[in-house]
Amino acid sequence: MSYLAKSPWLIHYDGSSCNGCDIEVLACLTPMYDVERFGIINTGNPKHADILAITGSVNEQNIPIIKNIYDQMLEPKVVIAIGICATSGGIFRECYNVQGGVDQVIPVDVYIPGCAARPESIIDGVVKGLGVLEEKYKKYGKKR
């Protein structure tokens, strides 16, 4: 972990999640899990962020917002779907207002299962996302 070459900043958007995964994402930032050790910061500004973490499924209302945040982020970017609702819709898959997972709207790079996803699982997923980010850098022919 100590060889992370980049300090990825993360923006978190709550789709229609139940707060469970949300709170676990926040818990990752607090002293017990403390992802700031690795330089990961939760930012509120899409233009500062490398990683978009989405919890919860998508519905009619938040499709334009998720697209908006995604478009504002600079390339290369990684999308992480946290929790079962974000990956497949979960228990709410059959609800009338739920479209399904986040991959219905924007391309998703890492899926983190779990209901609610554990902080350990989220940290693992973000590390996996960093690998994807590295590859995208190479694809863009950028030096870091």
Binding site: T87, S88, D103, D109, V110, Y111, I112, P113, G114, A117, R118, E120, S121, D124, G125, K128, V132
Partner: peptide, 9 residues
Amino acid sequence: TYSSSVTSK
């Protein structure tokens, strides 16, 4: 143990 994260469905 939790199931691990994946990069494709």
